[in-house]
Design a protein around this nucleic acid. Sequence first.
DNA 1: TATGAATGAGATTTCATTCAT
DNA 2: AATGAATGAAATCTCATTCAT
Lengths: 200, 200, 200, 200
Amino acid sequence: MSKVQSNKQKKNDSLLNTAFDLFTEKGLNKTTISDIVEKAGVAKGTFYLYFKDKYDLRNKLISNKSSQLFIDAYNALSLTNPDCSFEEGLLFIVEHILNALNSNKALLAFLHKDLSWGVFKRAFEDTPVVDEDNFATFYKKMLDKSEIKFKDPEIMLFLIVELVGSAGYSSIMFSDPCNLEELKPYLRDTIHSILIAHTV
Amino acid sequence: MSKVQSNKQKKNDSLLNTAFDLFTEKGLNKTTISDIVEKAGVAKGTFYLYFKDKYDLRNKLISNKSSQLFIDAYNALSLTNPDCSFEEGLLFIVEHILNALNSNKALLAFLHKDLSWGVFKRAFEDTPVVDEDNFATFYKKMLDKSEIKFKDPEIMLFLIVELVGSAGYSSIMFSDPCNLEELKPYLRDTIHSILIAHTV
Amino acid sequence: MSKVQSNKQKKNDSLLNTAFDLFTEKGLNKTTISDIVEKAGVAKGTFYLYFKDKYDLRNKLISNKSSQLFIDAYNALSLTNPDCSFEEGLLFIVEHILNALNSNKALLAFLHKDLSWGVFKRAFEDTPVVDEDNFATFYKKMLDKSEIKFKDPEIMLFLIVELVGSAGYSSIMFSDPCNLEELKPYLRDTIHSILIAHTV
Amino acid sequence: MSKVQSNKQKKNDSLLNTAFDLFTEKGLNKTTISDIVEKAGVAKGTFYLYFKDKYDLRNKLISNKSSQLFIDAYNALSLTNPDCSFEEGLLFIVEHILNALNSNKALLAFLHKDLSWGVFKRAFEDTPVVDEDNFATFYKKMLDKSEIKFKDPEIMLFLIVELVGSAGYSSIMFSDPCNLEELKPYLRDTIHSILIAHTV
DNA sequence: TATGAATGAGATTTCATTCAT
DNA sequence: AATGAATGAAATCTCATTCAT
């Protein structure tokens, strides 16, 4: 990469990281572009070379951050337990992501209601988990490999994503009605029930 | 009510209704107080006689609208099937609310971020469903009346609320991964599983 | 007029006058809205209560100022020589306007290429010279009263307006190819020729 | 011309032509240097190798385009009717230029503010019509050759230029108060009158 | 010569809030 | 209670110009 190119990458990353910090600290509305460029140490005009506006930057951040969650979880699974069953794999990924969010509440607050099917699908359609792969093909492979067959595997995944994203948020952020550790067994049970209900 | 009093009520309602229309049309951020007062046909200063600011108005709207959803569902249940089982009652209320939101997508879009445990709890703590009652006591009565006993009924309700709120949103707004009618049986199954898992 | 109303009028006038000064001093492009409001002593937001933008203000100024030129010339004619011939009246008005512009070069610079048929027509269509009158009807009256009849009186006036506006500008602003006093006889001759050519 | 030289010429022309298109399309003010270089397909810095700024480019365009109008008219006259009278020659050139502008309204719009004595003089002082000639000497030759003698031939030309430029613009651009074909006889008459008035 | 990323001053515009009427 | 003109801080965004490559 040329010096110019690497410099551009640095600027872009600096803006993204600074904006993430400010968004989680003060919220999207109260964060101004002036705030971002000042803290990132670039000129105001530079912002507009990289992003259309604040919302463009936000969307790119959501994409980045949510993809990274899956990539990390997938990589951890590959390292620790690549040959587990479908259910074990699914539960591992769910727990890995919940743990990551539990130790990074700023990230959870930022992703908030984007921890849902729509964003989830976009994130795993766009992002190769490993080089030519993405979560969609990974999920398909896990299904194919599994001895148990499921009807409507997409809806099954949808229900799990919505349940986990939504309940996880409340439990991690407010410990209401219980904290994450207390919630985990209930989530496991419910996910198990969902899988059973979808077993052919 | 004096003429002055009813006039004030009219202004208050006009501001609330107009704001709701604008919030659902343009979003909270892009709706200005100027927009609201202009469309409501009152002067700018008048706004501040009724609300502290835009967010005060928004909170009052959320309270209003979400309570009303439960009140309507509860009233419908009382009229059509007051003596049903716990599970039947719960499913009736879930379906009633989903149907209401399905035919009022603007309302769903508005409540979206708040269709969750936190707001749900506040809504049913604050609002008497019938005169001296609220959803919390109503839920407790349903539980007491039920022949089946549940462990952790609060977490059980929490899981259901988060699942239904979250999955319902995606299905109603985007028909993704399926529309509401296709989703309903899966929700019923999953809710049933959750109840089973919590049965003592 | 209420105090509020007269205050508004004052603000409006103050903005118009200040802007005119700045436009003629620094040009339209180099004059910023900040400049205008600062010099006029009003807040920036106030500007937008009165004008859509800088160009809206400019257009209103052009209308104002060019109408005023005709009104003044007409009034002067009414006072000094109300019963003169058509040609004398026309020449009087032409000379009166040229003299006014000669002693107010800032105004001439501002009106520049708007001293032409398009703006002229709009100015005398919109603006009553006296109460129910405007230049169009005044011109028509002058024609009717005249013993000489003209074919195509509109084109005749058009030629005169364009010639006088255009040649007057160069002579007043740059004394090129001659100054106004030297130009006047040539203009009178040419106008006379135009009248003759249009005489039936 | 070396390859480098011709490449520079190409860039220069490309910038001029692109700028002309944009100026006539969006106006000088709303056309940015970014617009020009983007459409011309050169880098931003390159612009400054050829022009000082936007206004420098504009001035060069005006010079180019207005000279070309006279050159074309002169050449046409030389080809078709080199031995005509002074008045015939003048009328031919006026008509040729008006026809050119009539079929190129973008050019007329661009030159508008400059279709006047000041720019006219500069254009015919600077630009050799044929190799060692320019419009000034050409005009002088025509006068010398003419059997009729005129007093103040410069003012005479001035009146004609201002009249034709100004009235032609309104008629070509807006057909107000009449279109160009309808205007022509009136212009011819008026020019004739001006010549007569200046005949010694 | 040519490039185009970076700059940053400054222009335009918005809008919540106040307060005299 | 109601009005709405006025405010002005602050936000967004532009764009001519420079300069390292």
